[in-house]
Design a protein around this nucleic acid. Structure first.
Lengths: 345, 345
DNA sequence: CTGAAAGCGCTAACAG
DNA sequence: CTGTTAGCGCTTTCAG
């Protein structure tokens, strides 16, 4: 016989109590490290616990306390460099505060997104961090419930929800001005995705225009490259079509790194040099940016800060904070690499 | 008043029963879609449910059924291209079978790895899919418990556990022979990581040697490049040192894609052309392989198959299958790209 | 400082 | 076909 339970069913709190010759309350007390337990009582119980290999049943505990110590993170895809690093940061931030994270993949499907929001009442989690891809502010307002939610990303969200994002318009402007600083005059934007209802692209486009106008450059709508879907292949098609149809540009701001690396690849295939002929900037500063060729200059949201704020704010809500939604702008910077290098002094 | 609960606490099963004027059992019956409920009874209950906005409390259900319909997936890092695509595939496979996945990040820390295995008894999940980075077969044997586990990856695992992996030795041999087929004679292996106890590297090294010997090439231990840690930076250092110390090679098999793309980058910096001077092969066929320059030939495990098998086997165990561990070899192939192109006919 | 007992919300025997 | 009832394993008043 090893030190674990020998044979049949799981050992329960009462079993430990019986084994140690004390009441269940006392066992509970030592499990929870409560004060006011005599040392020898404590050690006796401790011994019984290890003897029997007792592990508290979390489900039972949850039922009575109404607390799960879990939060959900709902993201469009796990298998995406930005979201997986976001998930990583959130898991770590939550761990520090003794919460576990249930990652929910919504596949950018609005039904699944709504399900997550509705599900949260099922009592599986104490709160939700939610990065929508499709769902709109209106949809959300309808399912107002009591479990706390913190929204991430660029979609407009109901005022009642806490929300964290970077200032997309400003960041986009910074990126455009960096390209202008490199002497680029005809700067394209990739890509305006058909059916993107979350509005990230819109804000980035606004910043793009603002950046151009501020610098006295005219906005040429043919330089806003339309993309069919979020796949890198569509991005390649868009860039290729632009080139084929004789549209000329010397700078390219992309809505995300995946589009950007796809563009780099296409430009190389077309024999166009980066950054000499066309300087390229991506968005999200994912691992792709580090290993592309040339390495990719990219708008870099501070994921640590976003994750920390999200977890902190959510836990505040879980612990009872009320009041209207707080709106936080997270820090970011432009991570300069080869595809749009630093402006020479 | 909207259609949801107006005011205070969550609505329970009894509330619905009272509202509909039936017993709890009847409500439970319609919630579970049991047969033998008269249509009008059913619709009456249904109406009460929507009227009150009732949502079953999963925690309570779990406590009584002892079933969580959740499985855990324990991986070293979420933020890693291979593991995040594995997670994606497993989440989808589990979804098809009405299971949800709790992703646990072990950070390649053996304590955390063991915690996950011990934790599974906490009743949070019905089973665990576990890809270890550090923990050995011996450690595992000690915590034999009753919750089912399916092991993934190359580490040796106790015979009592189900286990899925690709044949690393054979795959490595295939890769080496592909390089030999390209006429390469001096093929290096990157990298033998210090302190890698999980044994993946060892198997790949064995295949590497076997491939060389089979083809009548001698094995030169100076061609096995030692790497300090799993970071891409260490891999660069290793390759650089090899080059500086005059070690010559024309082929490079890497233990994973991250090392491979790091190597590609370093070779480029050193002015060495790929694949002309050195052909490179990676491992895992991650997104990095698609966007590196040149694009990377890589050993490509069939993640779909692995995920499906893992989920299927785990659920079989959850449903009571007993017997010793099943050992499954998953399919793979060599995904040919530019860094080690197809052999000309 | 410790024990007894009630109950979290649900399910599933067992009667009717 | 529907209702009553006894728990699932834990926490937590409230007495002692």
């Amino acid at each position: 016989m090893s030190g674990t339970n020998n044979g049949s069913r799981r050992v329960r709190l009462v079993d430990v109590a019986r084994h140690a010759g004390v009441s269940t309350k006392t066992v509970s007390n030592v499990v929870h490290n409560y004060q006011h337990v005599t040392p020898d009582m404590r050690s006796r119980v401790q011994k019984a616990i290890t003897d029997l290999g007792y592990k508290p049943n979390l489900t039972a505990r949850r039922l009575v306390t109404g607390k799960t110590s879990m939060i959900a993170l709902a993201i469009p895809e796990t298998n995406h460099p930005y979201f997986s690093s976001l998930a990583d940061a959130i898991v770590k931030a939550a761990e520090d505060r003794d919460y576990r994270v249930l990652i929910e993949q919504t596949d950018g499907d609005s039904e699944k997104e709504l399900d997550v929001l509705r599900d949260r009442e099922a009592g599986l989690v104490d709160g939700v961090i939610f990065q929508p891809a499709k769902v709109t502010s209106l949809d959300l307002a309808q399912i107002q419930e009591d479990t706390p939610v913190v929204m991430l990303g660029e979609a407009a969200s109901p005022i009642s929800f806490d929300h964290i994002m970077i200032d997309n318009t400003a960041a986009s402007e910074v990126a455009v001005k960096h390209l202008i600083g490199l002497g680029r005059k005809r700067i394209a934007f990739l890509g305006d995705v058909r059916g993107d209802s979350a509005g990230a692209t819109k804000k980035r486009l606004t910043g793009y225009q603002k950046g151009l106008e501020d610098s006295g450059l005219s906005v040429d709508t043919s330089l806003v490259l339309q993309v069919e879907s979020f796949s890198p292949e569509s991005a390649k098609v868009a860039v290729q079509e632009a080139i084929r149809s004789g549209i000329e540009f010397d700078g390219l701001l992309c809505r995300d790194d995946r589009f950007a690396v796809a563009a780099l690849q296409l430009l190389r295939d077309e024999g166009i040099s980066t950054p000499e002929e066309i300087a390229v900037i991506g968005w999200d500063d994912t691992v792709l940016a580090r290993y592309s060729y040339p390495t990719l200059t990219s708008v870099s949201p501070n994921i640590q800060a976003i994750a920390n704020d999200a977890v902190t704010m959510l836990i505040e809500r879980i612990e009872g904070l009320s009041g209207t939604g707080r709106h936080v702008l997270a820090p970011y910077n432009l991570h300069i690499r080869e595809s749009a290098p630093a402006v020479k002094a």
